[in-house]
Design a binder for these strands. Structure first.
Lengths: 197, 197
DNA sequence: TGTAAAATATTGACACCGCCAATATAAACC
DNA sequence: GGTTTATATTGGCGGTGTCAATATTTTACA
């Protein structure tokens, strides 16, 4: 028998929302459809989310958490700084390719005061890369320089590959190359070794 | 007196749509509001656009055209390849900061068969950068190597800075630096000179 | 020039949406 | 046990994309 109180509606809604998002994009994600799939009334979600944007922010936050897990795992399986940077960036891009609609939500402008935990989890993701660069510098595998600027240069490159890969998913970003790792490897090598003659 | 036939409704709608998009984001862009502002009935837009997506694709296409103009102009005002790359990337990022919602539409996945002219204009934008790299190689200011891969590495970096700047507009991507050009200059130098020790 | 055809715009409708208000039910607390 | 609080429901409002049918204007051709 159906109980009046769902028990764990917030989590159930988030799971459903993430599914809807992955299946048909953000335009197909509606509070009413979420409620219907969860077997509750069309207004039940408003007990757990202030509005639709709050749902999107929660999905984005969860995305940063999952991204951090994958990037951290990838880093731990590589030895040199160069290989770690390739591994981390590959994980970043693969995550984007596996969750394109979620990643789009992750990099939308949100009100920081409304969603402080979102900012927190996004900064945690970036911090993984920062530590990588810092250790690389200490190991003398990277040039000494402003760690933060170097981190953001690498981040920008990985993020650019990720977002462009999403936009041009059908035709590979780098024709001829097959895997994400090969593609990323080329770009990270460019960044580490430089393009100037 | 108001005429039954508008005369140039398609262009008028596109102008209005671009305004609505810039003002309040894609969620505030509705066919009905466009029609209302243009002074036509709520179904008149369907004479000129198959559906809402077609409007978004048209806005994206126009965006690539404007981007090309600005990037080309920036390139022509710089001398060395390094300065041209900085100028082009700065123009790219500034365009993104000036038209954030439009840029988001420009880098969504579209059906290539539905919007062939959109693909065309986007490739034209990328070609500007490709030519820049190729000439840089010929002038021996860039290393010899796969021109396409190098182009896309630079593109990815510029695009990453652009999209991250949009997402984190409020707090500058690079605290301490002020202008976009300074920020970009740092990153392009990273890419040209390399980060490996 | 007159008329048929095509292009353009309108009215009306439907299902869906986010969100608000009022109400009902269940749980928690003392 | 009774009150307070959290949770969920019903009902409704204005807005949205899109379809169908209709009306008007322009174009094209005889």
């Amino acid at each position: 028998m159906a109980q009046y109180h769902h028990g764990n509606l917030r989590n159930a809604l988030l799971t459903i929302a993430t599914e809807l998002l992955a299946e048909d994009g953000v335009h197909a994600l509606s509070l009413r459809k979420m409620a219907q799939r969860a077997g509750v009334s069309h207004n039940a979600p408003y007990m757990h989310f202030a509005d639709k944007e709050a749902v999107l922010a929660a999905i984005a936050e969860e995305g940063f958490r999952e991204l951090s897990v994958e990037v951290e795992s990838a880093i731990s399986q590589a030895s040199t700084t160069r290989l770690q940077l390739i591994a981390a960036s590959t994980a970043y891009v693969n995550f984007a390719l596996n969750h394109p609609n979620q990643v789009k939500l992750m990099f939308c402008p949100y009100d920081e005061e409304k969603y402080p935990s979102l900012i927190e989890s996004s900064q945690a993701s970036l911090h993984l890369l920062f530590d990588l660069v810092k250790i690389g510098q200490e190991k003398r595998e990277l040039i000494s320089g402003n760690t933060q600027e170097m981190t953001k240069a690498i981040w920008a490159m990985a993020h650019g590959v990720a977002t462009l890969s999403i936009a041009y998913k059908t035709n590979n970003l780098l024709p001829g190359k097959i895997s994400t790792e090969e593609t990323i490897s080329v770009f990270i090598d460019c960044l580490l070794d430089g393009l100037a003659a």
